[in-house]
């Protein structure tokens, strides 16, 4: 029982950390309908940025803020230079464009800052938090809390004036134009916020595994979170993250011994497939997906 609880709790926390990587994806999709497959690369870039600032001598909090500012600006830049000319192109072109951006960043960032893994110490000790016979991972606990805070902040943000504009834009571009909202600016801001969300994911994951290009492979679990939760729902990021994390922890925890290998990626793949087959728009996604 304690084993089950431990898998459950750690899985849920890991899932929330996946949500952090998924949050940016949803924000961008929600506002502009662009599936940003470069979100993993943004996470990597954010982690490198934070590491570079710390290495430069800034204290951690200042490094995180500076990285957030940098990533916000980079998000705006990407939207303005790369995505705006693609308006009206088929989805495959946009998908490939973001993949091209991913390749570019995976070359540029490690090329300039060094490809070997960099340590990013955010001062979380190794000792577990022990409740009964359940060992909780302290780093994941912090990560989970940060994820909840960021997801909550995003939800609240959509209740502010600017957030309301963003929601209007995500509902209907043409109608927003008609009432005088700047759709372009709203989309740009959503890219900027996605950049900030990438800093959260980058710093936390970077502190766990070290900063190198493999951070961009967080895209795969993030995609599972997004598909399951609903591709345009922030609530979905939270619930989807929990579900992907828990299923990806509990099922392998009992099955691996018999499967003779690690089954987590199988579970993640099946989550994506089954969701798409049964309920393509996910748990909380809007049901206006064009079906055949």
């Amino acid at each position: 029982m304690a084993y089950f609880l431990e898998l459950l709790v750690n899985g849920a926390l890991v899932g929330l950390m996946y949500s952090l990587a998924a949050l940016g994806f949803v924000l961008i999709y929600k506002s502009s309908g662009v599936p940003n497959l470069a979100q993993g690369a943004l996470v990597m870039m954010a982690a490198y940025a934070a590491w570079a600032m710390v290495d430069f001598g800034l204290p951690l909090w200042a490094a995180v803020i500076a990285a957030a500012a940098l990533m916000f600006a980079f998000g705006l830049l990407v939207e303005r230079v790369l995505l705006r000319p693609m308006v009206g192109q088929p989805v495959i072109m946009v998908v490939m464009l973001t993949l091209g951006l991913e390749i570019l960043l995976r070359g540029l960032v490690p090329g300039l800052l060094g490809a070997a893994p960099k340590p990013l110490d955010i001062g979380i000790g190794l000792a577990p938090v022990i409740v009964g016979d359940v060992f909780m991972n302290r780093a994941y606990l912090v990560g989970g809390v940060v994820a909840v805070v960021l997801i909550g902040a995003s939800m609240l943000f959509f209740r502010t004036r600017l957030g309301t504009k963003l929601r209007a834009v995500s509902d209907d571009h043409v109608a927003s134009w008609a009432v005088g909202l700047s759709v372009e600016r709203a989309i740009a801001i959503s890219w900027g916020i996605a950049g900030i969300a990438a800093v959260g994911a980058g710093v936390l994951w970077g502190s766990v595994q070290g900063v190198d290009w493999t951070l961009s492979s967080l895209l795969f679990p993030a995609v599972a979170v997004v598909i399951l939760g609903g591709i345009d729902s922030i609530k979905g990021v939270f619930v989807g993250g929990l579900a992907v994390g828990i299923l990806g922890s509990v099922i392998p925890g009992y099955l691996d011994a018999y499967a003779g290998g690690s089954t987590r990626d199988v579970v993640t793949s099946l989550i994506i497939l089954l969701t798409i087959m049964i309920r393509p728009y996910g748990i909380f996604g809007r049901e206006d997906i064009e079906r055949i």
Partner: peptide, 29 residues
């Protein structure tokens, strides 16, 4: 699972096995 950035479920199981020694066999992060 590869690339190994997240291994918590496996180690919960390893701890319950109560090994006297653990060999870790991976690379990179």
């Amino acid at each position: 699972p590869s690339p190994g950035n997240e291994q918590s479920a496996v180690w919960s199981e390893v701890r319950r096995y109560r090994p006297d020694a653990v060999f870790i066999w991976g690379a990179g992060g």
